[in-house]
Amino acid sequence: MRKTWIALMPLVIAGVAHSAQAKELATQDQYMCSWGAGTAARAQELKLSGVSLYAARQKIQVYKFAKSWMRMMALGITEQTYDSPSRFKPTAVRQSFYEDCVRYKLARK
């Protein structure tokens, strides 16, 4: 009996570890991360092209957003992007933002 438990214990531990990693992101969270990544990439494009933070904010204020939370979040993401000394390409910023957002959302579950 003891040998059976010793043999089954690694399988049980592996199963528990696998189920903990297999959490899926809700559709709304995926949308939010994807949208935020796109916003960060656009802000990085504007920053690298020499557009001032003031002008970038004005562009955001004029844009029509689908959801109420988007305008404030876009302003925050843009401001953080401009505050960063990063000179990464927008595609790298998009990828990094998305991965970090997904990691954060999964950690909160």
Rank of each mutant, 00 (worst) to 15 (best):
G15L: 03
V93T: 07
E79Q: 10
A14K: 01
G50Q: 09
A40K: 07
Y63E: 15
Y31R: 13
D100N: 15
V16G: 08
E99C: 01
R108E: 12
F65Y: 15
T81M: 05
D83F: 13
A55T: 12
A43V: 05
Y54L: 14
K64E: 12
A26W: 06
A26Q: 10
K59L: 15
K23H: 10
A43I: 03
V102W: 01
D83K: 15
P10T: 01
S68V: 08
L48G: 02
K67G: 01
L11T: 04
L106V: 07
K64L: 10
A56E: 05
G15P: 08
Q30Y: 10
M73Y: 09
L46Q: 12
A43G: 00
S19V: 10
A107Q: 09
D83V: 04
C33R: 05
S52Y: 09
Y104N: 05
A55M: 12
W35Y: 12
A22K: 11
L75E: 12
A55L: 11
Y104V: 00
I77S: 01
L11G: 12
P90Q: 09
S84F: 02
V16S: 07
G76S: 13
R2K: 15
L8K: 07
F88S: 11
L46E: 08
R108V: 08
P10N: 03
K47G: 02
A74E: 06
R103I: 00
I77R: 02
T39Y: 00
R103F: 01
W5N: 13
E24L: 06
A107L: 08
P85N: 08
R108N: 07
V12F: 10
P10R: 00
M72G: 13
A17Y: 07
G15C: 05
E24Q: 14
W69L: 06
E24A: 08
